[in-house]
Design a protein around this nucleic acid. Sequence first.
DNA 1: TATTTGCTACGAAATGTTTCGTATATCAAT
DNA 2: ATTGATATACGAAACATTTCGTAGCAAATA
Lengths: 129, 129
Amino acid sequence: MKKDRQYQPTESELEILQVLWKKGSGTVREVHEVLEAQKETGYTTTLKTMQIMTEKGLLSRDTRHRTHIYFPELSREDCQQHFLNKMLDGLFDGSAGRLVMGALDNKKINREELDAIREYLKQFEHPSS
Amino acid sequence: MKKDRQYQPTESELEILQVLWKKGSGTVREVHEVLEAQKETGYTTTLKTMQIMTEKGLLSRDTRHRTHIYFPELSREDCQQHFLNKMLDGLFDGSAGRLVMGALDNKKINREELDAIREYLKQFEHPSS
DNA sequence: TATTTGCTACGAAATGTTTCGTATATCAAT
DNA sequence: ATTGATATACGAAACATTTCGTAGCAAATA
């Protein structure tokens, strides 16, 4: 019943969440090393951002040891849904069908993904009639 | 060949673009009246934002008369693709299939939309083999 | 013509986000 | 114990975005 009362991550915050979603958890150093490989950025920048995210409730952390360990508090799935909803409302007139078709146009989709989508569609068949 | 060299709209800018996409074009007053119905906001705020958007190339305008008329310079479709790509990269590991499935979960999709999607999928059939 | 109304221009405050320098503490190694 | 490497905390600058007040001009109206 509550769900969407969560803070929505900014661009930078999203980059950090992505790392933590993949790893499950991580230290500032670990997260920073991934980010550093993608873009020019300083260690304390990553640190500060992760601290702010913790204040906001996007992350939690274990501070029992000198090196803190961070955990995502917003799930990837909830985040995906949040942004999908936003796009839906803001750009696709609320039509999920249009969004899906837009996504299909967007990138090359391989045979397996297409099959998976077709399979997935079956579950939306009228179950009774 | 150039395409994506366009500036990406912010949240507020998107709201304005939406109005203009629907109407095709409009004055500040017209846009503002729509926005005002959605949220508390001042006229000069809308005006200023539209002026900035014009500087950025997101809008153009006809200034021949006292009351300027604004036109979107970024198409809805390009904007959709831009944000879909962003979500794809940032949240779905680049997998359009996952994004599509996430979107299918997201909102109730009616029978017609489902059919349209299935129909749409056909065009991705192996065209040659 | 004088007043009111409605428009644009523009500066700048308010707010939000990102970046980084510096202080300080802890641990490891000499 | 001293030094060096590595942590966190934190303030504040640098940027970006949003909001709004005010000035000035043009059109409509009294």
